[in-house]
Design a protein around this nucleic acid. Structure first.
Lengths: 270, 270
DNA sequence: CTGAGCCTTCCCCCAAGGGGAGAGTCAAGC
DNA sequence: GCTTGACTCTCCCCTTGGGGGAAGGCTCAG
């Protein structure tokens, strides 16, 4: 009797390398139909070819082996389909992001790179309604959406006295994780659920307004930073953003306005 | 005098991590404006912020550091733009490929996975005009195009007696490099330039026709392989493909026909 | 019998970082 | 001027999904 396909034959049939097949076996992704307990020879069944191809496809989409393992370990076809769709959703997201990045890069390289000039503004202390949390950079958008939704639910339109905003620790960007606070000036802040009353201290802010979608907002950050550095100032503390015109106001991202304010202090001279 | 921005300040301003900035320095991508020769401290200039942002964008698009270095090392703006566009072209290609892979995966997971059944065919020896070469898997498509162009140039339409085809060593896929031969049956094969006369031996082939674009041709390969394995046969030697309807005939990939033939021999029984 | 194929184990390599150790440096406050 | 704490330096190891190679031994089929 034929014990099955040898690893070399199976490699030829699936166009995977022998090495890679051994790796997939070790990772538990594609266990040979039979392993000779005496010789250790791997024997594959022709029925395993489709599985090998699914693995190949998912790997081409950069799904990590662990994720593929989770997909393949699932028995229920519906659940398996859902897992795959989840991965595919991530792929589509990555495609969208790549497209946006290409556009942003083109803008970055085009010579017309001017815009409103930053300025210095002193703001007084005030109290706002806020939601805070320690957040990973990757989750920041989702976290912002949920926090702002809670804030909006707690304060109907007539109680709001200004544009929504956020305060973001610098480590959020440089270390990938940090304290995020979203807030909204309202007539009478009061704590409720995740919402708390936040006292914002008086500060001197270097301020600039970013126009358009956020794909290349870091360019504006860079201009603000260069302005700060060029004026014998230094950044001190978390950045503030406020969104006078944002996604909540119009779907046309080109019309968005984002005000960026960085607390600064005057350098005494080094 | 201020010697410039410390690495931490520059990290905050560009939203890059300190570690990453050090790496970019080491790679020569973003050399600090000044490095204190005594302490080794890096000091950056505000003017370097735009460069950091270009690097960030290109990295988001998965352009390798070496490629970014090449872009940044170029003085001529036009040439630099061309390099960037080249990278962006690669990105678009990758996006297209990812989309095709997603479609192929969906097809692979959808239950209706039937098609024409493989069959066994005995072909006699024949002589064809061919171009051969040892090729890396990644270059195979480009190599095919150039070889087939030479073949087509040597034999005008009225001399051709059949569809173009190719013979591909199995190692091309399992080891990433192998012998590739593209050929075309013609009335009177003769050697000229890279074109040589190739004698194809008589063989017994397991044959199946693949319909549509080549994104998921490996599924058809898998079905053929499973059929071979299920009929007490084994693969022996390089696969043959022929393209009765291919890119040369129609731009509509859905109408392509690809005949896959694998030389097989009957297993005597293990 | 012989050669090809397969087994494990070991080491090194790539990319683009992250984590952490141990030591040196800077600037502010006292 | 000194201390202190934050910052920075270099150096080494870890990650992922492979690829390359070698050693040393077994097994399979013609």
């Amino acid at each position: 009797m034929r014990p099955g396909l040898t690893i070399g034959e199976f490699a030829t049939l699936t166009r995977l390398s022998v090495r890679t097949l051994r790796r997939y076996h070790q990772a538990g992704l594609l266990v040979p139909a039979r392993v000779d307990p005496h010789t250790g020879y791997r024997y594959y069944a022709a029925e395993q070819i489709p599985s090998a191809q699914v693995i190949q496809r998912l790997r081409e989409l950069d799904v990590p082996l662990a994720g593929i393992g989770a997909v393949l370990a699932t028995d229920d076809p519906a659940e398996r389909g859902a897992l795959v769709e989840e991965h595919l959703g991530r792929v589509e997201e990555a495609l969208d992001r790549a497209r946006a990045t290409v556009l942003s890069l083109r803008r970055l390289l085009s010579p017309e790179r001017s815009g409103p000039s930053p300025s210095l503004r002193t703001i007084g202390a005030r109290s706002v309604a806020a939601v805070s949390g320690e957040v990973d950079r990757g989750e920041s958008l989702a976290w912002y959406a949920s926090a702002m939704a809670e804030l909006d639910a707690a304060y109907p339109r007539e109680e709001r006295t200004g544009a929504p905003g956020g305060r973001y620790a610098n480590e959020l960007f440089t270390a990938g994780r940090g304290l995020m606070t979203v807030y909204r000036p309202v007539r009478t802040p009061r704590a409720h659920g995740r919402v708390e009353v936040l006292g914002l201290p008086a500060a001197e802010l270097a301020v600039v307004v970013h126009h358009g979608p956020h794909d290349d907002i870091d360019v504006t950050y860079g201009r603000l930073g260069a302005w700060v550095a060029g004026h014998a100032l230094a950044v001190d503390g978390p950045v503030h953003e406020s969104y006078p015109v944002g996604p909540a106001d119009t779907g046309d991202a080109a019309r968005w306005r984002t005000e960026i304010g960085w607390p600064v202090f005057r350098i005494t001279g080094r």
